[in-house]
Design a protein around this nucleic acid. Structure first.
Length: 111
DNA sequence: AGTATGACAGTCA
DNA sequence: CTGACTGCCATAC
């Protein structure tokens, strides 16, 4: 296990996601310089279960669908967490997704 | 070293 | 938008 590799970068970015905002796996992967490794981001977040400080529920796929909800406690925990932040979710899909999308490439570059 | 897996993304229909 | 197929990358065994 490499705690200081690709995974940790994913963790760092995920932790920077502001309250009430969400981002996609591809956005994080692209920020890391490997836009093709979006799948690794998801996997990293899977391992992130060891760290509760990581708001993995704010990371969804490019469609804004909570594809990883089943990785949470059980069922609608992920959705409830998002709704608790003011994010509307319908049938596992984030509503007004583009409006609350947080792009690390832009935000972390001080634009 | 090779195979299997994964919370994806892009393209085509 | 949704569904099916392909491509890419990193990790686990």
């Amino acid at each position: 296990m490499s705690n200081n590799g690709f995974f940790e970068k994913v963790y760092q970015i995920t932790k920077k996601i502001p309250y009430g905002k969400v981002t996609s796996y591809g956005a994080i992967a692209k920020y890391l310089g490997t836009p093709r490794s979006a799948r690794m981001v998801g996997w990293a977040l899977n391992n992130s279960g060891l760290d509760e400080s990581i708001p993995a529920h704010r990371v969804v796929n490019r469609k804004g669908i909570l594809t990883g909800k089943h990785h949470f406690d059980g069922t609608n925990l992920m959705q409830q967490l998002l709704e608790n932040e003011g994010i509307k979710v319908d049938n596992n899909q984030i509503l007004n997704f583009e409006n609350i999308f947080w792009d690390p490439i832009i935000e972390l570059n001080g634009q």
